[in-house]
């Protein structure tokens, strides 16, 4: 599985605590919301990376093992996202979204998270265009549909919803809060 990331850190062959120490330094160089892939062979790193992410406010996405190399995916935390600010006027909660998905009406569910976040779990049938690419790719959306926009916490999807409305799409609804609270079916790549 090839996942698009902003940075790849090679921590292969390093023993504890070096994978964490190197990750700390690398994350400092990233912008909030960017994604890093940490490659490690230290078997303890899977547990450590998760604990570290929790204590430093990063978002652990998942780990893939390929040819005895552990690839850990992390997204740099962003304080803005933890605040609940909804500016787009049209929103829907997760229960109502679930009913829409299970219903007969045809809808477009647009997931605007980073590719690595999408790869580690999304709602089946969701279309993926990350927020950063929306400007260039919004025409791929079926503009006849109601478009439900989702991210992790509702922050990026709010920005995306407003961006799409500015592009002239009229039926755009922001899903709040987002994948962080989603209890329904999940599909992985």
């Amino acid at each position: 599985m090839a996942i698009k990331v902003n940075q790849v850190l090679d921590a292969k062959g390093l023993a504890c605590p070096m994978p964490i120490v190197k990750t700390r330094k690398a994350i400092n160089e990233l912008e909030p919301g960017q994604v890093i892939e940490v490659q490690a062979t230290d078997k303890g790193s899977t547990a450590d990376i998760q604990a570290w992410a929790k204590s430093t406010g990063q978002h652990y996405l998942g780990t893939v093992e390929e040819d005895h190399v552990l690839k850990h995916y992390l997204r740099k935390g962003s304080l803005d996202e933890e605040k609940e600010v909804a500016k787009h006027p049209y929103t829907i909660d997760l229960d109502s979204l679930r009913k829409k998905i299970e219903g007969d009406e045809k809808i477009t569910l647009l997931d605007v998270r980073e590719p690595a976040e999408f790869a580690f779990g999304h709602i089946p049938g969701a279309q993926h265009i990350s927020l950063g690419e929306l400007e260039e790719r919004f025409e791929e959306l079926n503009q006849e549909d109601d478009i439900y926009v989702i991210c992790r916490t509702g922050h990026r999807s709010d920005m995306a919803s407003r961006q799409l409305t500015e592009k002239g799409l009229s039926q755009v609804i922001n899903v709040v809060p987002g994948m962080s609270e989603w209890q329904g079916a999940i599909e992985k790549e």
């Binding site: 504890c16 605590p17 964490i20 120490v21 990750t23 700390r24 450590d48 604990a51 570290w52 204590s55 430093t56």
Partner: peptide, 10 residues
């Protein structure tokens, strides 16, 4: 090890 891991965890 504990000191550097803790410091790397802010």
């Amino acid at each position: 090890n504990i000191a550097t891991a803790a410091a790397a965890s802010d």
